[in-house]
């Protein structure tokens, strides 16, 4: 497996687009949270109603939740990195050459699955560091691992988004269409469908593929208000569904690549 990863590393090591996007993504994780912090910090501090309503989301333990939530808006970037990595192989036809040179089809697609884990781990580490930075800055004495499960949810969400991107790239093969369909699906189409199903079919829209991971990390502020008009969430079921979908993305990706004409 290390040998396979070494080869993937050789492919990506000198690929500038990948690194530019990766670094900007990591900076943006911090950036998006900094924006949220600026918005929160500009609240009317003397208004006790506002203070009671929002509290301090950047203190431990809430910061684990808040930073995971804010960072999750950048999930599509992980998908983009994955799509580039796979569709590049198609446009250079190196997916064929790797097989011709002696990789099995399973090895080729297996490395891409490993890549989804690696970029998800990298993103999760960035989120942990960002949460630590804000939490320690606000009040280091409150440090705790309470609510650290949100970091775990973030990791599962990251895995789901990148594995779904892997499947999309293997299905569409071309970068343009993969990126377009992936963005529209993750940002709009699934949310639209989820909204419709939630409204008319007793909230089943919550269990759509990526929706189930989005709902693991729910909006951390205004809980008191929101909870009044949404049905309660079943986290165990969401988690189960998320893992089932994840297994499905990986299974379908492997199957697609192992049976396709390359």
């Amino acid at each position: 497996m290390l040998q396979l990863l070494k080869i993937e590393w050789l492919k990506v090591k000198n690929y500038r687009t990948f690194w530019v996007l990766s670094i900007l993504y990591l900076v943006s994780i911090f950036g998006s949270n900094y924006i949220a912090w600026l918005v929160w910090d500009s609240r009317p501090k003397k208004n006790s109603d506002v203070n009671m309503l929002v509290g301090n989301p950047f203190k431990f333990p809430d910061v684990w939740h808040v930073v995971s939530y804010t960072s999750s808006f950048l999930m599509f970037m992980l998908g983009l990195l994955m799509i580039i990595s796979v569709t590049n192989e198609y446009s250079y036809k190196t997916h064929r050459q790797n097989i011709i040179d002696g990789w099995s089809r399973r090895q080729f697609v297996g490395v891409k699955v490993l890549l989804t884990f690696i970029i998800s781990i990298a993103a999760t580490i960035a989120v942990i560091l960002t949460a630590l930075a804000f939490g320690l800055f606000e009040d280091a004495s409150l440090f705790s691992f309470e609510k650290f499960e949100f970091i775990g949810y973030f990791f599962i969400q990251a895995l789901s988004y990148s594995a779904a991107a892997l499947l999309f790239s293997l299905l569409f093969k071309r970068s343009g269409i993969s990126i377009g369909v992936y963005f529209l699906y993750t940002l709009i189409l699934e949310n639209m469908l989820a909204g419709f199903l939630n409204r008319y079919f007793d909230n089943v829209g919550r269990y759509l593929p990526l929706e189930s991971t989005d709902n693991l990390i729910r909006i951390p502020v205004f809980k008191m208000i929101i909870n009044q008009f949404t049905a309660s969430y079943n986290t165990t079921l969401l988690l189960t569904m998320a893992l089932i979908y994840l297994a499905l993305y990986i299974f379908l990706s492997m199957r697609k690549f192992e049976t396709d004409d390359l």
Partner: peptide, 27 residues
């Protein structure tokens, strides 16, 4: 050793780096 239809290499890598990848895959 196989050359099938077209030369398939990573466009952004040098000739030598492309061969390093091929050699690694071939073991």
């Amino acid at each position: 050793g196989t050359l099938l239809e077209t030369p398939n290499f990573y466009h952004y890598l040098s000739g030598e780096r492309n061969l390093i990848i091929a050699a690694e895959i071939k073991g």
